[in-house]
Design a protein around this nucleic acid. Structure first.
Lengths: 158, 158
DNA sequence: TTGATATCATTTGCATACGAATGAATTTGA
DNA sequence: TCAAATTCATTCGTATGCAAATGATATCAA
């Protein structure tokens, strides 16, 4: 008698429970987005410890300009993954510090050309070796093989 | 004769070149920090497409409160990797929207306790399934096996 | 050619993110 | 016990980051 004493309500409850074990075990700490944010924070912190007077976006702008030479503000932004509003602020601050200079495009009057100053060129050339150390330190928790795999997968995600 | 015609200058030049092929081949696009930033940007964009009325940090705060219940503002911050100044802004905005309520700690008068409101609880429980989809879509460029490896390595980095 | 579109840059508003300084309350240690 | 150190929260200043609106200039298409 007792062994078969399972009501319809019991069964329904069981089903509901196994159908959605969802809300109970959502672990924020294991979600990509959350960990990506933390990993990025850690990198920024390592960067700041090595290069105190420049932010990563500012460094990116200088490094890219060093790479490609004169470009328009918007184009530079697309090269370093910054929208127009953001890149403007970054360039303004670099200009205020004399690392970059602006000029108007002769033909297309909408464009604002950006270029490194001599000081900006010196700065970026001096900083690139340090940037290599920053990359290295950021990846330090991984073995060489792990780092290679990680970079490949990260590039797929980005 | 011709085969051994290598001057001291030639050798020095060769050495210099192999000692620092550095500044010439620094590729911003291949640095961890740069790609991490882009991957994070992509995730935030995916998040916004699924959950328009909440930011990832706001979601994190609600999810963590749902997980651990009432906590102090600072403690919540450390649980979701936000410093005191940042967490205050996030909590202020959640409070203004009625998703969270604040109260003073009876014993330790320095602490400000944060708790979900009924509305906040409803919201986070409704959003968690969507957050799973966001995680899934963020990892979509990777196979299941790649995603598992990536998450393991990313966790090591963060 | 000219009217519709598109592009480049700027501005505004909002939301992280964090260092540094400050004040209040608590804990520690001599 | 009481002064020093620590912790919690707030505020200020600076720097991304992005959506949306705007104005100027270019390009395209009918």
């Amino acid at each position: 008698m007792g062994r078969t004493a399972v009501s319809a309500e019991d069964i329904k409850l069981k089903l509901v429970e196994t159908e959605e074990p969802d809300e109970n075990d959502y672990r924020l700490q294991e979600q990509v987005g959350f960990i990506l944010r933390k990993a990025h924070q850690r990198h920024v912190s390592i960067f700041a410890a090595h290069i105190a007077d420049l932010t990563p976006p500012q460094f990116a702008a200088l490094a890219k300009l060093h790479d490609v030479g004169e470009t328009s503000q918007n184009q530079l932004g697309s090269l370093i993954a910054m929208d127009a509003a953001t890149v403007k602020g970054v360039i303004d601050r670099l200009k205020a510090r004399g690392l970059v200079e602006l000029s108007k495009h002769e033909v297309d009057k909408r464009r604002l050309l950006v270029n490194l100053t001599a000081e900006g060129r010196d700065a970026i050339e001096r900083l690139i070796p340090i940037a290599r150390e920053i990359t290295e330190e950021t990846l330090a928790p991984l073995s060489a093989k792990e780092a290679a795999i990680f970079m490949k997968l990260l590039a797929k995600l980005a």
